[in-house]
Design a protein around this nucleic acid. Structure first.
Lengths: 189, 189
DNA sequence: ACGCTCATGTCAGCGACTGTCATCAGTAGG
DNA sequence: CCTACTGATGACAGTCGCTGACATGAGCGT
C-alpha cells in the first residue's frame, strides 16, 4: 500500500465526469473536481494540462490501437483501406465499452470548449494516421488527404452511432460509412 | 464624425495580428491588444467573445460565400459536386486576399488554442454545408458525410496551398484535391 | 540510520473573462 | 432649445483557470 490512494488520475476522471454531468462544465471548477477526488487543485494540474484534458485520457489508447491496426494491415491494401482497417479496430474498442462512450460523448457535446478539444484530438489522430500511411509507402500529400478523409468518416460514423443507441454496432456503422463514401465520391464526372 | 474612432473591431483585429506576430500568442495579453487599438480591455470583450475569436471574424464571410455557392449550384449536380463548387467560391475569396491568409495561417498554426478554434470553425462550416445539402434534397445522414468529407478536402487543399507559396492558385489546388479524393476512394474493392 | 525520491500540499500571483454602474456624444421628440 | 433616450465606451471589483516556488513526509535503497 502506497502512501496515497491509488489511481489519482482515474479518480479525477471519474469526479470530472460526475460533476460535468451533475452541474455542467461551467458549473464545475477544477477545485471541485480535485476535492471530490480527494486531492488539491494544484495536483489536478499535475495530472492534466487543463480543465478539458481530464476527459480525453482515453484518446491516447484509441490512437495507439488505430495505428497498430494500420501497421498490421495487408501491405498490399490501398491506403484508404488500411486506414479503414485501423479505424475499425478503434471502433471495436469503443464498442466494447458499451454505453460509456455515449455518456462521455453527451458530456462533451454539451460544451463548446470540450467539442473543440475533441476536434483537436481527431486532428492529431488524422496526422498520426497520415504518418503511418507514409510509413507504408504513401506519398506525404496523398497520405494527408487519405487520413483526413478517413478520420472524417470515422467522426461521422461515431456521431451516427451515438445518435442511434438501438442501431448496429460501431464497426458496422463505420463500414457502412466508408461504403457510402465510395458511392458519394464516385458520383458525378 | 462619431464620438469614437471608427471600426473598433477592425482596429482590434489589426492590433491582435501585429501583437501575436511580434510577441506570440502567449506573450500578448488582451489588455495589450485593447491598448494598441486605443480601447479598454473591457471593450475588447464586448467585440470578441475571447482572446482567440479576434482572428476569426472573417470566417463568417467565408461561410456565407460557400453556402451561397452551394445554393447557386446546378440543382442536378451531385451533392459532393455542389459542395465542391461552394468551397471553390470560398477558395477564390481567400486567393483574392493574396498573402493575407498565409500570414494569418502562420499565426494560427503557431498556437494550439488557435488551431483548435480553427478546427471548430471548420466543423461549423461543415455543419452549415450539410444543412445546405439537405435543403437541396440530400438525406440528413448522407449530407453530413458528404459535407464533412468535402470540408476535410478543403482543409487539406488550404494546407497544401499555404505550404507552397509558389504553387498553383487555391481554387486549382482544391480542384486537384477533389480529383484525388475520387481516385483514393475508388481504389480497392 | 541516512539520504533520496516523488507525489502531494500550500501559497502567492498573473491573466482571461464577467457583472455592474457611470459617462457622455449624438439623436429624436416636443 | 430643452429633454429624454440610445449606445459605445470606461472603470472597478470579483471569479476562476493555470503556474511557479517551496515545503512535507512516507517509502525505498544503501
Amino acid at each position: 500500500m502506497g502512501r496515497w490512494a491509488p489511481d489519482a488520475r482515474g479518480r479525477l476522471h471519474q469526479a470530472a465526469m460526475e460533476l460535468y454531468t451533475e452541474h455542467g462544465y461551467d458549473g464545475t471548477t477544477t477545485a471541485d473536481i480535485a476535492e471530490r477526488a480527494g486531492l488539491s487543485e494544484r495536483t489536478y494540474f499535475r495530472h492534466f494540462a487543463d480543465k478539458r484534458e481530464v476527459l480525453f485520457d482515453s484518446t491516447d489508447a484509441l490512437q495507439t490501437l488505430v495505428l497498430d491496426g494500420i501497421a498490421g494491415a495487408d501491405p498490399a491494401a490501398a491506403p484508404l483501406d488500411a486506414a479503414a482497417a485501423g479505424l475499425g479496430d478503434g471502433a471495436a474498442l469503443l464498442q466494447s465499452f458499451g454505453q460509456g462512450p455515449r455518456h462521455r460523448a453527451a458530456v462533451v457535446a454539451a460544451h463548446a470548449e470540450l467539442r473543440e478539444r475533441e476536434l483537436a484530438k481527431m486532428a492529431t489522430l488524422a496526422q498520426a494516421v497520415a504518418g503511418m500511411l507514409v510509413a507504408r509507402g504513401s506519398a506525404e500529400a496523398s497520405a494527408a488527404l487519405t487520413a483526413e478523409t478517413a478520420v472524417a468518416v470515422f467522426r461521422v460514423a461515431f456521431d451516427r452511432w451515438v445518435a442511434d443507441p438501438d442501431g448496429p454496432a460501431l464497426p458496422d456503422v463505420l463500414a457502412a460509412c466508408f461504403a457510402e463514401l465510395r458511392e458519394v465520391s464516385a458520383r458525378g464526372r
